[in-house]
């Protein structure tokens, strides 16, 4: 009897583990049109750090008006979706499974062992966020996290939090100060043009240009008219290439950003 009960209890535990999402460290929420998810399958974060990071992901989702997925795994094995074997495709296919293809979102993957058995961090944007997060911005965010918030010295919470902060600065719709000056400059130019037109209404006295009103009708006689071709020159300029801020996942989704080993 005792043996039967023990076997039954073990089976229940196993079933629970199989049904649960990959680890109890997967937490997700949906607020309005967008959701955010943290999968700490690597279990390097404490519950308190997980909660705190989740709060930051919620803020990030609200500020950027998009979905947010942060994945932290030991390796790329045991994926419940198909991918092409690379770390970048892993997180992109993970995102597509949860939120859909090309849905506005930011996705971050930290893995302790990528396809080359190296530590990897990837920061990507898709949908509207593909335009807002450029490859250079993704690189800057990754470099800042690696150099200034290295997980070996400061822990993985600090590392992931730095990435979330970097995304919150770079991605939300904003107009740089230089563009504000440009808008003001254009406004001033428009004002000058309009005021010159209005002021021009007050000035009606000026010397005549020429004597066109006194040309004798039919008197113009062109006795010689020659248009002689001399020579030609050809100049060329390189066409700007399509922005490299565009990668495609194996699921067909389009992404900006990139990944780094560290």
């Amino acid at each position: 009897m005792k043996r039967i009960l023990a076997v039954l209890f073990a089976a229940a535990i196993l079933l629970t583990i199989a049904v649960l999402p990959a680890g109890a460290a997967v937490v997700s929420s949906q607020e309005g049109d967008y959701g955010y998810m943290l999968d700490d399958a690597a279990e390097k974060l404490t519950p308190a750090e997980r909660d705190k990071l989740l709060g930051e992901l919620s803020d990030l989702s609200a500020a950027c008006k998009c979905n947010v997925l942060f994945v932290f795994v030991n390796d790329l094995n045991n994926a419940k979706f198909s991918f092409n074997g690379t770390a970048s495709d892993y997180v992109q296919r993970y995102y597509e499974t949860v939120y859909g293809v090309n849905k506005d979102g930011l996705l971050v993957l930290v893995t302790l062992s990528d396809e080359n058995n190296k530590r990897y961090v990837g920061v990507f944007g898709t949908g509207k966020c593909q335009k807002r997060l450029t490859d250079d911005e993704s690189l800057d965010i990754r470099n800042d996290a690696i150099e200034n918030h290295n997980p070996d010295s400061k822990g993985y919470y600090d590392f992931l939090s730095a990435i979330a902060s970097g995304l919150k600065k770079a991605v939300p719709p904003h107009v740089p100060f230089t563009k504000l000056l440009l808008a003001l400059g254009i406004g001033i130019v428009i004002a000058v043009i309009v005021m010159l037109i209005l002021k021009g209404q007050l000035k009606t006295v000026d010397m005549q240009h020429g004597a066109a009103n006194y040309t004798r009708m039919g008197s113009m006689n062109v006795t010689a008219s020659r248009d002689t071709y001399l020579y030609s020159t050809v100049t060329k300029s390189a066409r700007p290439k399509e922005s490299s801020s565009s990668h495609t996942s194996s699921g067909g989704g389009s992404y900006s950003g990139g990944g780094s080993n560290f």
Binding site: S219, M220, S225, D227, Y231, S232, V234
Partner: peptide
């Protein structure tokens, strides 16, 4: 590519005022 062709234009004649 931009091709620029150069021409010399000559006009002569008369007009009355």
């Amino acid at each position: 590519y931009t091709e620029t062709s150069y021409f010399s234009i000559y006009r002569a004649g008369s007009i009355g005022f």
